[in-house]
């Protein structure tokens, strides 16, 4: 078995217009910039994107939005240092937003990967983000029903991976990445280091390979924060 892809371009080549795509990361930490940029080169449109944020500056997810590829964004916090790419399009109605509390977003993705179609959470009860959702009482307290989130594809960044797709992550760059690996039909991972099977101690595997379909090595990956400091733009 070998899930390795030769290039980021090949790894994302079959993502069609209209697809739902989860993109890992929290701000720039754990954002798979090279995979996103390869997807911009490929150019599918009318995508629904699931990410915690809505991009920053003119690279990564912000560049995808600027390239008119995103029809709808599902996120918890569509603000950043430079959120103009999303803000301008949202305010004039060119991009739809489903705002989800951050923990609910994480759990909806986890549920999607775990085969749990819905769950109840105390989060957002009595607020406008729970409007129209079923409410039920358990042990005397009200909870809001939330549904799973699944995707056609997930774009994920990990630190090390082996040919079986076993992954480890770096520092706080883990965040949504392991959850999204579970919740997409096809999970595409860029790893900073692709190592032979057996090099990752099974005791420290964070994402087991069963949740990963494609791996591509991107050594020395770009950091969104540093690209923005340099005022980079993509393409």
């Amino acid at each position: 078995m070998n899930k390795q892809c030769a290039s980021v371009a090949k790894a994302v080549a079959d993502i069609p217009s209209g697809a739902t795509v989860m993109i890992g990361g929290f701000g720039g930490s754990g954002a798979p910039i090279e995979l996103i940029h390869a997807l911009i080169d490929a150019g599918p449109t009318n995508l629904t994107v699931i990410n915690n944020n809505a991009g920053n500056g003119h690279v990564g997810l912000a560049a995808m939005i600027e390239a008119k590829m995103v029809a709808k964004l599902i996120c918890s916090f569509p603000k950043s240092k430079d959120p103009r790419a999303f803000t301008e399009r949202y305010l004039d109605g060119r991009i739809a937003l489903e705002l989800v509390p951050q923990g609910t977003l994480a759990e909806r993705i986890r549920a999607g990967g775990a085969g749990i179609p819905a769950f109840y959470t105390p989060t957002a009860y009595g607020t406008e983000l729970a409007e129209g959702k079923a409410v039920a009482e358990f042990d005397g307290k009200p909870y809001v029903q939330e549904r799973w989130l699944k995707a056609d594809y997930a774009l994920v960044k990990a630190e090390r991976g082996d040919p079986y797709g076993n992954l480890t992550f770096r520092l706080a760059a883990r965040n949504f990445n392991p959850l999204m690996c579970m919740a997409a039909r096809t999970t595409i991972v860029q790893v900073s280091q692709l190592v032979p099977a057996g090099d990752i101690d099974p005791e420290i595997v964070v994402t087991p390979g069963i949740f990963v379909d494609r791996l591509v090595e991107v050594t020395d990956p770009a950091q969104e924060e540093l690209l923005n400091e340099a005022e980079a733009r993509y393409p």
Binding site: S76, F77, K79, P83, L97, L99, V100, P101, Q102, T123
Partner: peptide
């Protein structure tokens, strides 16, 4: 632009 993050 509404943004909620983890507050709720």
């Amino acid at each position: 632009v509404p943004a909620v993050g983890g507050a709720m």
